[in-house]
Amino acid sequence: MTMILGLYNYWIVIVLMMIGFYIIIAHGHLIKKIVGLNIFQISVFIFYISLGKVDGGTAPIWQEGIILYSNPLPHVLILTAIVVGIATTALGLALTVRIKEAYGSVNEDEIQAMDNQVMASQEKEPQQC
């Protein structure tokens, strides 16, 4: 029972991570994939944040009478990772816009089918000439 309740933060992380991962794999829609990627990354953010929390500790601001502080380092680290996550999302969305312009679709299967068609037509070409 302590395995489940005592470590609940890890269970949340694992569940979120698997949801994100599943969306990335199972969905063909590019925007949904980016959303999945976000959930996947956020699960790791939560992991880091819960890592720094010390039971009974307060925010790491010096004050008289307080001896137990949470560890601020993982929180600072994850700020960097959040920025990276935003950059990745922005780039992914920008690419999606460009893909929509170039292919007229944001569906993985349709894009792949169009690419395969181009590949197939290129392979035939030499026999004609």
């Binding site: 990335i24 590019l30 994939k33 990627l37 990745t88 780039l91 992914g92 690419l95 999606t96 460009r98 893909i99 170039a102 292919y103 894009i111 690419d115």
Partner: peptide, 10 residues
């Protein structure tokens, strides 16, 4: 290239 880049991004 766009599609390859997107796949690489993921």
């Amino acid at each position: 290239a766009l599609w390859a880049s997107f796949q690489y991004l993921i």
